[in-house]
Design a protein around this nucleic acid. Sequence first.
RNA 1: GCCGCUGUGGCGGAAUAGGCAGACGCAAUGGACUUAAAAUCCAUCGAGGGCAACCUCAUACCGGUUCGAGUCCGGUCAGCGGCACCA
Length: 832
Amino acid sequence: MRERYQFGDVEARWQERWEQARLYQAVEDPGREKFYCLEMFPYPSGNLHMGHVRNYSIGDVIARFKSMNGYNVLHPMGWDSFGLPAENAAIKNKIPPARWTLDNIAQMRGQLKSMGISYDWDREVASCLPEYYRWTQWLFLQMYKKGLVYKKKAAVNWCPGCNTVLANEQVVDAACERCGTAVQKKALEQWFFKITDYAQDLLDSLETLTGWPDKVKIMQDNWIGRSEGARIHFALEGAEGPAADLPVYTTRPDTVFGVTYMVLAAEHPLVERIIAGTEYEEPVRAFVRKVQGMTEVERTSTELEKEGIFTGAYAVNPMNGEKAPLWVGNYVLLEYGTGAVMGVPAHDQRDFVFAKKYGLPIRAVIQPEGETLDAETMTEAYTGDGVMTRSGAFSGLGNREGMKRVAAHLEASGSGGATVNYRLRDWLISRQRYWGTPIPIVYCEECGAVPVPEADLPVRLPLDVEFLPTGESPLNRSPEFYETVCPKCGKPARRETDTMDTFACSSWYFLRYTDAKNDRAPYDAAKARYWMNVDLYIGGVEHAILHLMYARFFMKALNDLGLTDTREPFQNLLTQGMVLKDGTKMSKSKGNVVSPEEIIKKYGADTARLFILFAAPPERDLEWSDAGVEGAYRFLNRVWRGIYQLLTENPDMTKMPSGAPEGPLSKEDQQMRRLLHGTVQKVTEDIQVRFNFNTAISAIMELTNGLYLYKESPSKHWGVLREVTDHLVLLLSPFAPHIADELWEATGHEGFVYRQAWPAYDRRILADVDEVEMVVQLNGKVRDRMKVPAAISREDTEKAALALEKIRDAVGGGTIVKIVTVPGKLVNIVLR
RNA sequence: GCCGCUGUGGCGGAAUAGGCAGACGCAAUGGACUUAAAAUCCAUCGAGGGCAACCUCAUACCGGUUCGAGUCCGGUCAGCGGCACCA
C-alpha cells in the first residue's frame, strides 16, 4: 500500500478489474430476490453534466447497497438518442444525425465509465438504433390494432422554431419547451395515442403509488384535471333533430335556471352554420378572424378582456324552455368540454364580467344563507353555496342537492345528465421531423392508412439524406423512403413521413433492459416478469408529468394487450434536485458550468461522487462548492492515511481476527465498538429508509474521527481496530467504490467489496451501556446534566436530579408541581 | 386565482416519534510542526452580557396547545414549483 492515495491509478485499476470480472452483469435467478434500480437514461448531448453525475451517483449507492444486502440487482444504462439537437447539429455542422449521435454516445459512455458506476453494459440500449426502434414501431402497431392510436385533424400546437407540432405537455407558457418560440395553432392531420381512455385509471392508481413523492402525484392529478358536472343539451332554435343539438358542459348544473345567454368558442363548427346568409355573417366572421389572429399567449391570458358578438341565433334551455341568445366569445376554449358554455352571470365571475359589458340580464338563482342577492346591486358573481330560487320545481333545495337532482332530471328527460370531464388531452405523437422512430403506416389511395406488417419491421430511417437549413424533414424529399407499395393491395403507396415523439421511445425502455438483445420480441415475457417493476426510479422532477405519465400510460396499455403483468412501471420514485452554482442552474450562457470531466481528472470519481452526495439530501437543490469538493477529497485521504498508519504500525494486522478480545474490555474499546455499531445502524437506515446519503456520510466521517482517537489510545486492541477498518471500508463502498476496493485489498481481503455482505450491527453492543448522561430541566430549560447508571429506576433518577446542587439551589423555597421523567433522556422539574 | 413545497449560524446542512438547537463538513481565526511553503495536527467558532462559574436571547413573523415546540395547531410575510379564461 502506498503512503499517499493516488486516485488516478486506483480508479483506473479497479474499473478495469470490474469489467474483466463482469462484476455488474445481471443474470436472472428465480432463487434470488431481484432489485431493479434505474436512472433516467440521458439524451446523448455529448457531455456529462453535474446533474447526470448526481443522478447516477444516487442510483449507484442504492444498487451497490442492495447488492451487498443480497439482492440480485439489475442496474442498466442506455441512451434516449432520437431528437431534435441531432438534426440541428446536422444542419449547422453538416454531420449526419446518426454519426453525431453515435459519436456523442461513445464520448459519454467513456465519461460514464470513468465514474465507476455499477452498470451492466451488456444491456445498453440506444433508442435510435433499428434493433430498438423496431420494437417501438411494433408496440405502436399493437396499440393501433387495439384502437389506441388514431389520426385526426385537429388544432394543434405548431412550433415555427422547430418546424414541428408539439404535444400539449411540451407547451410551456404558450411557447415551445425546447426552443422557447411562441407556439401557433394549426389545423393539421396528426397521430394521437388515446391516453384519455386511461384518464381515470391514471388518476385512480396514483393512490397505489405509495413510493412516489406526493408532489409528483399532485402534479399529475392536476394535469389530468378531473371535474364532475353535467352535460346539458340545449336546442338550437329553428333547427330540427341532430342539427339542433347544442351540448354544454358545466360543473354547476344547479345554476341552469340562471342561464341568460350562451357562448360558443370562435372555432366551434356551429358558428358558420348559424350565421350563413344572415346579417350577422360578416361581423361575426370578422370577430372570429380577430380572435384567431391572436397568439396563444394573448388568447389564453386571463388578462385578456372578455369580448363576444351576438350570432342572431337562440338556444332553448331544456329545463325551462327559455330562449337564450347565442354569442361567440373569446374566452371559450374549443378543446375543453364541448366548446360551448352556458352563461350564468350571477354565479360565474367570467360570465358576470361578460354580461355587464354587453348588458345581458343577470339572474340570481342561488341565494346565500342570510342574504338576498339582487342582480341590480351585485358587483361580482356569487359562486358559493346556497339555496336554489327561481328554479321551478327545484326552488328551495340546497344547491349541492340541487346539482344531483338537476342532473337526474336531465338524464330522465333525455337532455343530458351527470358526467365527468378531464383536462387531459390525447397524446399527439407525430412529428414532422427526420431523427425519430418512423411511424409504421403506409397510405394507399384504395385502402387508406394501412399499418406496416410486423414482418416488414423495422421501417428503417434512411441514413444518406441531405439536410436543408429550412428544417423541413428530409424524409419528405426521399422518394426511396416514401415510395412503397400498399401492404394490402400491392398498388403504389406512400409511406408516412412523420416520426414519433421521442417520448414514445422512452415510454418502454425499462422493459427493453430486461431483455435488451432480443431480436424476436421487444422482450421475453418471463424475463420481464422476473425483473419488473422498477424498484427504484431516479431522475429529475422536470419529468413529473411528461415522461412519467406517458410511461404509466404505456404500461397500462401494454398490460391490457397482455404484454405485461403489471399496470404501473415504477414502484418507487426519487426525484432529485438540480445542481446549482451561485444560486442558479448551471448553464453555458451563464458561464457557471463545472465540468464533471475536469473534476474527475483533478480529484477522482470517488471524490466527485462523495461531495455531491454529501452536500445535500437528494431531493433538494444542491449548491456546487469547490471548497466542498476539497473537503470530500481531504476526507478520503484521511481514511486512507488512517489505515496506512495502522498497517505501517502493525503489518500483521491483516492476519488478526476481527472483533473484540475475550475478557473485559477497556472503556475505550467499548466506546469504539459502540460507535462502530451505531454507525453501521445509522448508515444502513439512512440509505435504506430515508435516502439521506448526506447524513450517512457524516456518520462515516464521525466513525473515522473516532478511529483516529482510538488508534492513539494506549489500550487499543488490534482485533477491534480490524473490525473498525473492515466495516469502515464496507460502509464507504457504495459512495466511493474505487478507494473501498483498494483498501479492502490492502487490509488483506480477497474479492470485490461489491460481493461482500453489508455489515451487520449488534444491538447488544449498542445496548451495553452502564452509565447514561441525562439532562435536568427546570420548567423545560436545561439547568444541569448528570451521569446515572443505565438501569436506574424512575424514583432514583428523580432523587438524583433533586440532589444536584444547582437544582437544590434553584428549587429553594418554590413548590414542585410535578416531575416529568423520560428514562435515559431527561428529568423536567416543574416549579411554580 | 387554485394546488403544493420551503424558511435553522458567515455557507452547505443536522436534529429520524414533541425531549440537550446547530451533528458532520466548508469558510474564518489563533497555535504546533517546518529554514519556508504545502500537507497534517491542536484549539476557538449563533448573538449579547460577565473576570469567572454562569446568565439572557435565538430555528422568517404573531399567537395557541404542552411540563417541554425547529418539530403540532391557527394566522401573517417571503421565496420556489405546478396548473390556470378548464365553464
